[in-house]
Every structure is written in C-alpha cells, then in structure tokens.
C-alpha cells in the first residue's frame, strides 16, 4: 500500500487543477501551471523515497537541491566557461555574421535563391557533428565551443533575416520609390525595422542551439571545467546529484537566455501585432 500516498497526491492535484482551470483567469492559469510543476516534483520525491531508488539511477529533487547548494562555486565556474564564454560569444558572432551576410546578399536575388534552399537544408542537418572537427582546429578551450555555436546558429538566423528583409509588402516599397528614396535609406528606414520580428524569431530559436552546441562540444575535449566536462566526469564518478545540478543550471541558463532575448524583442518590436498590449 506504499503507492497510496502517491496516488492520493496525484488525484488531489488533478482535482484541484480541474477545479481551478474553470476560472480561466491570468492568476489561475499561472497557479495551475505551478501546481502541475510542484506535483511532478512532489511525486518524484515521494517515488524516490518510498521505493528507495538509489541516487545512481535517479536522485530525489531534494538531493539535487542540496548538491546545487554545496557546489555553487563549481557550477558558477562551469557556467562562465560554457555559457558565457562558449555559447553567448559564439551566438553573438554567429548572429552578427548571419545578419551581415543577409544584408550583403540582399541586392542579389540570384545569391538569395542559391543560398536560401541550402541554408534551409543545412538548418535541418545534425550540425553538432562538426564539433570534433572544430575541437581539433581550435583547441580544447572555449574558442572551439564558440566556433561550433557560430556554425550552428548561422543558418537559422540567416534564413530568418533574409525572409525578414523580403517581408515588406510591395506597396511599401512602391511608396519608397515614389519618394525616390535611395537603396540605403529604404534599407535603413523601412526594411531593417520590418525585418526585426523575423530576426528575433531566429535569435530566439537559436538560444537553445547555442547551449547545446557549447555543451556537446565539450564531450570532444575541454579544459578541466565546463558543464559538458563536469557532466561526463560526474557520471563517471556516479555523482548523479551533481549531474542533475548541472542540468538544472543548463535549464535555468536556457530559460534566462531565451527570456532576455524575448525581453529585448519586446522593446524593439513593440509595434508588432504579437507584442502590442491587448486592448478590449
């Protein structure tokens, strides 16, 4: 009958959420999501404790939390090494390169027609696979991780930016023509602002790719710090709580990275229908 409390919590949470979901307000929606998350954590904790699951297989949330608290120094070093130096640097370089390339090929429909299908194609490929090559070329430190990230984020951002630059409707471009606006002016005043929602779409979807690239590249060689390095060595020592703490850091870093980009997007593209304050 050890399963009884688990089932009780499960049913209780379902009942509570079913009741709450009827109100459908902002507050209850948030509450429902939070209750669901908390229930999963509670069930996880209970299952591990009641059935005495060895931490080597699945540590309880409390154990992960404890490991997180005791290892903050290590986690911070790894965070700086992998996320800040590897992922963010690579992401910035890749994004800048993609935007500049998109603008460079903007005046050549021929190049666009050639590059776009290839870009779309490459975006679907397992690009992380180039990690071993780039680690060979750029060494074990963060530069090789940043290089992997640059390659991974380049094509999705390029494809989005080219689409964004093409997104102005013909009427708006005719309008620019009636004012005899030179190419540079219409690019700066019309097409770049109009491309921003597309650019940010590309920037947002690549934040996750950047983290993946930076962490996975560390499996092919890294200095004695970094999240990928820590995960593989901790797995070797069967220190699963530390592994999970690193995963927690990756999850937080991923959400933060995405959240910051989304926040900048909100400021920059305040005029876009998806960002405007809802009226009525």
């Amino acid at each position: 009958m050890s399963a009884l409390p688990i089932i009780a919590v499960w049913i209780g949470a379902i009942g509570l959420n079913t009741w709450l979901s009827r109100f459908d307000t902002r507050a209850t929606r948030l509450a429902v999501a939070l209750i669901f998350g908390a229930t999963i954590l509670a069930l996880w904790e209970m299952i591990v404790r009641i059935y005495a699951v060895p931490p080597v297989i699945l540590p309880a949330p409390s154990q992960i939390g404890a490991s997180f608290a005791t290892n903050t120094a290590i986690l911070w070093t790894d965070f700086v090494q992998t996320i800040v130096k590897g992922a963010v640097t690579g992401w910035l370089i890749g994004a800048a390169a993609a935007v500049l390339t998109a603008i460079a090929i903007d005046r050549s429909p021929f190049l666009q027609r050639g590059l776009l299908p290839i870009g779309n194609f490459v975006a679907a490929l397992p690009i992380v696979g180039i990690a071993p090559i780039l680690v060979m070329w750029f060494g074990f430190d963060w530069q090789s991780k940043a290089a992997v990230v640059v390659v991974m984020v380049f094509f999705p951002i390029l494809v989005n930016m080219v689409a964004g630059l093409a997104a102005t409707d013909p009427m708006q471009r005719d309008l620019m023509a009636t004012w005899a606006a030179p190419y540079g002016t219409s690019l700066l005043k019309l097409r770049l602002p109009a491309a921003m929602p597309f650019l940010f779409n590309g920037l947002k979807i690549t934040t996750t790719l950047a983290l993946i690239g930076a962490i996975v590249a560390e499996f092919f060689g890294s200095p004695t710090r970094g999240m990928g390095f820590r995960i593989s060595t901790a797995v070797g020592r069967l220190d699963l709580p530390l592994v999970w703490a690193e995963i927690l850091v990756a999850a937080i870093a991923g959400s933060l990275f995405y959240g910051i980009v989304a926040l900048i997007e909100k400021k920059v593209t305040f005029w876009h229908p998806s960002q405007r304050p809802q009226r009525g």
Binding site: I14, N17, T18, L20, S21, D24, T28, R29, V32, A33, I35, F36, G37, V56, I57, V128, T207, T208, L211, I212, I215, V216, F219, M227, G228, I231, S232, V235, L240, V243, I247, A250, A251, G254, S255, F257, Y258, G259
Partner: peptide
C-alpha cells in the same frame, strides 16, 4: 485542466538544451 497544466511547461521546455544531457542519459 490538462492544457493549463502541461502547455506552459511544454513551451518552456523548448528553451532548455535537452539534447545536451543526452549522453548522460545513455551512461545512466
């Protein structure tokens, strides 16, 4: 109820680099 419980987490989970922990899952 299912919508309000699961969807926010499903959407949020897309920002988490799940792929990066794949090798660890294998080892476990």
């Amino acid at each position: 109820a299912m919508d309000q419980s699961v969807m926010p987490w499903a959407v949020a989970s897309q920002t988490v680099p799940i792929l990066a922990i794949a090798p660890m899952v294998i080892v476990v």
